[in-house]
């Protein structure tokens, strides 16, 4: 087996004097889908923010392709797509403008695929509507459209299925599996039961 893409050892995080997890360890290989489970407030979002580098309030080590993530920050970020708690969509801009901005931020996103991606997530016809007049689910779809525009080796997705309808969830799950099949890895949190149980690694934060 190849060496793990992302290896976490002995991760400790404390918030408001409450230990969220201690001694957390897992490793993610290429082509794996990992589901982080846990109660509300068990630190799922915090963990994803730590993994993506948004938060530095942790102890322990995170290694990316065998090197400490702090030393290879730029390479790591170039390989990462993060879908956060907030969709990261500007209400004053149209879906197209939002995605164009993402393309300017991230070299891995392909500008030529914007229209196609918006079509796949079901936003054809809404290209010129400012996002504040779209529904919550549609706003999240704008941000999720990024998943159809890139092949970044690591996707970190925080509750990607929230406010998405059933058909959309099924399409998203298929996308995640396709991505894993192509050799990409996914870390996600969701309270939704994934239809495909095979090949999904689960990490339960309650046990740490």
């Amino acid at each position: 087996m190849s060496k793990p893409l992302l290896a976490v050892t002995d991760l400790f995080c404390e918030r408001e004097e409450r230990i969220l997890f201690d001694g957390l360890a897992f490793s993610l290989k290429q082509g794996e889908v990992m589901q982080i489970e846990g109660r509300n407030g068990s630190g799922k979002t915090t963990l994803l923010r730590i993994l993506s580098g948004l938060s530095a309030q942790y102890e322990g080590s995170i290694e990316w392709r065998g090197e400490s993530v702090d030393n290879v920050r730029d390479e790591f970020l170039a390989d990462l797509l993060y879908f956060g708690h907030q969709p990261g969509v500007k209400g004053m801009l149209t879906p197209q403008e939002n995605l164009r901005w993402y393309c300017a931020l991230h070299p891995a996103l392909q500008r030529s695929k914007i229209d196609e991606a918006l079509g796949v997530v079901g936003l054809t016809g809404y290209e010129d509507v400012p996002c504040h007049s779209l529904s919550a689910g549609q706003n999240r779809r704008v941000s999720l459209a990024r998943l159809y525009m890139n092949q970044a080796p690591l996707w970190i997705l925080d509750e990607p299925f929230t406010a998405i309808d059933k058909k959309g969830v099924a399409a998203m799950e298929q996308l995640l599996l396709d991505h894993a099949q192509r050799g990409g890895s996914v870390i996600l949190t969701t309270h939704h039961d994934l239809a495909a149980q095979q090949g999904v690694v689960k990490v339960n934060l309650d046990s740490f």
Binding site: G53, L77, L80, Y82, G84, P87, K90, L105
Partner: peptide, 22 residues
């Protein structure tokens, strides 16, 4: 403020490009 509230600011931080330019 508005970039912080809607999460676009954290996406700027996750860009491999230097944040200073933004």
């Amino acid at each position: 403020r508005s970039d912080y509230d809607d999460g676009t600011l954290e996406q700027m931080l996750l860009s491999p490009q230097p944040l200073m330019i933004v």
